[in-house]
C-alpha cells in the first residue's frame, strides 16, 4: 500500500510537469462523453421511451457504467498499455523487482486525465437523481456502490485479459477494444434493448449485464426480486479464469521471452 501511494505521488508529480496538456486532455475526455450524452438526449427528445425505459433510466445506466469504466481506465491503464511494456523491456525490469507483478504494473501508469470522463458521469448521475428520485433504501445505496465497484473490477479484469494476450501475441490485439471501448459506448442503454442474444452474452460470457442491467432493474423498481440485486458478485466468477490465465501467461513469457 505504501508503495502504491508512492506511485500515485510520482504520477501526480509527472502530471504537474505538463499542466496544460493534462488539463486539455481531461477536457477532451469530458467533451467526448458529452457528445454521447447529447446523442442520448436528442434521441429522447424524439422518443419518449425505448423498450419501456425512460431517458432518466438510460442515463442512470450510462452514468454508472461510465464511472466504472473511467475508474478502471484510470487505475488499470498499465494493463491497457501492456504491449508497449513488453516491447520496451519495462516488463523485464518489473520481473527484476521484489514486489508483486500486478502491483508494479498498476503503479507503472495511472491515467489521471480520465477525471474528465468521471466528471461527466457524475454530472449525469446527479442530474438523474434530481430529476427522478429513486426511492432510496440502504440496500439500494449499497447496490449502487456494488454496481460501480463491480463494474470497475470487470473492466479491470478485461484489461488484464487483454494484457495477458500480449504475452502470446507480443503486440496489442486491437479487436479486443470491442470488449472495452465498445462496451463503454453501448453500455449507455440498458443492455436488454440490444436483444436477447446480446443480453445472454453479457450475462454468461462477459458479465456486463450483472453490473448494469440486472441491478438496475431492482433499483428502478422494475422488479422486486432482491436476488437480482446481488448479480454484481458474478464479476468475481469472471475474475477467476482471468487470474489463472494471467499466471499462465507469465509462465509462458518466462519460458519464451520476447
Amino acid at each position: 500500500m505504501k508503495l502504491y501511494k508512492r506511485y500515485l505521488l510520482l504520477h501526480i508529480q509527472t502530471e504537474l510537469e505538463y499542466k496544460t496538456s493534462f488539463l486539455l486532455t481531461a477536457i477532451g475526455q469530458f467533451l467526448v462523453s458529452c457528445n454521447v450524452f447529447i446523442g442520448i438526449y436528442f434521441m429522447f427528445q424524439r422518443f419518449s421511451t425505448v423498450k419501456g425505459y425512460s431517458f432518466e433510466e438510460c442515463l442512470f445506466c450510462f452514468s454508472l457504467f461510465l464511472l466504472s469504466f473511467s475508474l478502471a481506465e484510470m487505475f488499470f491503464r498499465g494493463f491497457d498499455q501492456f504491449a508497449s511494456m513488453i516491447s520496451n523491456g519495462e516488463f523485464d525490469r518489473i520481473l527484476l523487482r521484489p514486489k508483486s507483478l500486478v502491483l508494479q504494473v498498476l503503479g507503472s501508469k495511472i491515467e489521471f486525465t480520465r477525471i474528465g470522463r468521471m466528471l461527466q458521469a457524475l454530472v449525469m448521475f446527479v442530474y438523474v437523481l434530481l430529476r427522478q428520485p429513486i426511492e432510496w433504501t440502504i440496500l439500494k445505496a449499497c447496490i449502487t456502490v456494488f454496481m460501480i465497484l463491480g463494474g470497475t473490477v470487470l473492466f479491470a479484469a478485461l484489461f488484464v485479459l487483454y494484457a495477458t494476450i500480449c504475452f502470446f501475441t507480443l503486440e496489442g490485439l486491437e479487436i479486443f477494444n470491442i470488449f472495452t471501448d465498445g462496451a463503454r459506448e453501448f453500455g449507455k442503454y440498458p443492455l436488454a434493448i440490444y436483444g436477447k442474444n446480446i443480453l445472454l452474452f453479457s450475462t454468461f460470457l462477459i458479465p456486463y449485464a450483472c453490473i448494469q442491467y440486472y441491478p438496475f432493474l431492482y433499483l428502478t423498481d422494475h422488479t422486486t426480486n432482491v436476488m437480482v440485486a446481488f448479480t454484481p458478485i458474478a464479476v468475481l466468477l469472471f475474475c477467476i479464469p482471468v487470474h489463472l490465465f494471467w499466471n499462465y501467461g507469465i509462465k509462458h513469457y518466462q519460458s519464451k521471452g520476447s
Partner: peptide, 18 residues
C-alpha cells in the same frame, strides 16, 4: 522516471526494495 527528479525515482526504489 523521465519527468521527475532523480532523487524521487530513488525514493520509489527504496519502497520497492523495502
Amino acid at each position: 522516471w523521465w519527468d521527475i527528479p532523480v532523487i524521487d525515482s530513488f525514493h520509489l526504489l527504496k519502497d520497492i526494495y523495502t
